[in-house]
Write a protein that binds this DNA or RNA. Sequence first.
DNA 1: TTACGTGCAAAGTCTTTGCAACCAT
DNA 2: ATGGTTGCAAAGACTTTGCACGTAA
Lengths: 144, 144
Amino acid sequence: MEQDLRRTWDEELRSHGYRVTPQRQLVLEAVARLDHATPEEIAASVQETARGVNISTIYRTLELLDNLGLVRHTHLNHGAPIYHLASDADHVHLVCQDCGRVLQVSPEAIRPLITALDEGHGFETDVAHLTVFGRCRECRGKNA
Amino acid sequence: MEQDLRRTWDEELRSHGYRVTPQRQLVLEAVARLDHATPEEIAASVQETARGVNISTIYRTLELLDNLGLVRHTHLNHGAPIYHLASDADHVHLVCQDCGRVLQVSPEAIRPLITALDEGHGFETDVAHLTVFGRCRECRGKNA
DNA sequence: TTACGTGCAAAGTCTTTGCAACCAT
DNA sequence: ATGGTTGCAAAGACTTTGCACGTAA
């Protein structure tokens, strides 16, 4: 499994003329390990397992991997980008504006939306990038 | 109409113990006039009609108006917040990741989504804050 | 008058960039 | 060898904060 991941992006990089470096390896592993993380969190995570990768390299690597389609990002709060593996099953994020909790739901839940936007507006939804803000069950219960 | 808007937020501010100042008035008018704009754009717009309002006041005012529920914001790209009047009819933004175009669609288009998230997850969607990324009809036509 | 609000400037985040040294190929 | 990569430090873009003065109420 990890071997598969490795082989895949190895080839992906090389086939596009990019080099396979330890830093890129570490960043991708961190993204896979953390599941959902900001550039800072990824940097912190990488420091633990290695001497470290410079934060600017983290940014450059994430941008590269994103362009290659190996990772994806979305914006959960304010504007902080959150990265995750593109190979992760597609999912949509529900962010509670009260408690900050982040729920993941299957794209099935939003299939009707995708269909409606496609048929009604010719718009092709980027499901992996979708974040829905609102209030979660718990917070709705608490307040009015 | 403009009178209505004015009376409404005037009272809204005062009833919460805030003062009605020319700056706040200018910022709200700019948000109404521009329909969708970033803090910077709002600042620029305000400079045209008056000596100007300091950018930090713009930020403070937008935050205040947002808390009071007079304006709303969403994040279209990277992280630049886009403000618009809360009284605007609810609408959802479709952002094309290829050309950057922003389409507005009625919340009707996403009613099924709202329903599904509510019934399936007890999640109350903040429609006005929703932004959907993807590719617009034109860009889908152009490329493959 | 009183204390909320504003302008200004400095400080803070987060991200990008220039450049010389480094290393994957 | 040689050109893509990295680390470092500086520069940027955007936002927040401290403080003294200004002003709505």
